[in-house]
Amino acid sequence: MSNSVRVQTEDFDLNKEYNHLRAAHYPCGAVVLFSGLVRDFLPPQQLISLELEHYPGMTEAMLQQLSTAATARWKLLGTTIIHRTGKLLPGDQIVLVGVSSAHRTDAFEAAQFIMDTLKTSAPFWKKETLKQYPGSAPESYWVAAKDSDEQLAQRW
């Protein structure tokens, strides 16, 4: 069993994480990788940057708990959770959840459980810096938690 939890400012390499999960318990039957990106929805190009704050110590403990809970519930061979902090730009990778198992159903479900639960329980907060109308200075806002995320987490 290979469980890895990392909170870091640096970017991550999907191929490297995939190969690690694949090799840790060769031959595993399935690897599911999810990566979350900084998005810029409506109106286009309004987002300048995102600042991710977290609670050092508690963040790592909560992510470790998610990994442990997933491992207890599904038959898994390995899990990797990476979450970035600090300043990020549109299109940047924010989060990675990787799961390896003998069969795809366990890997798919466990990855979705980890991601849904992370969204509502891991102590991270996003602050967006947005472009205002031409000529005015950019302004920053804390992102509000979404009820839809809470509902997704509750299904588990």
Binding site: V95, K119, W125, A145
Partner: peptide, 10 residues
């Protein structure tokens, strides 16, 4: 003890 708003990571 920590106090904080609802989380918005991921």
């Amino acid at each position: 003890v920590a106090f904080f708003p609802p989380v918005t990571g991921g």
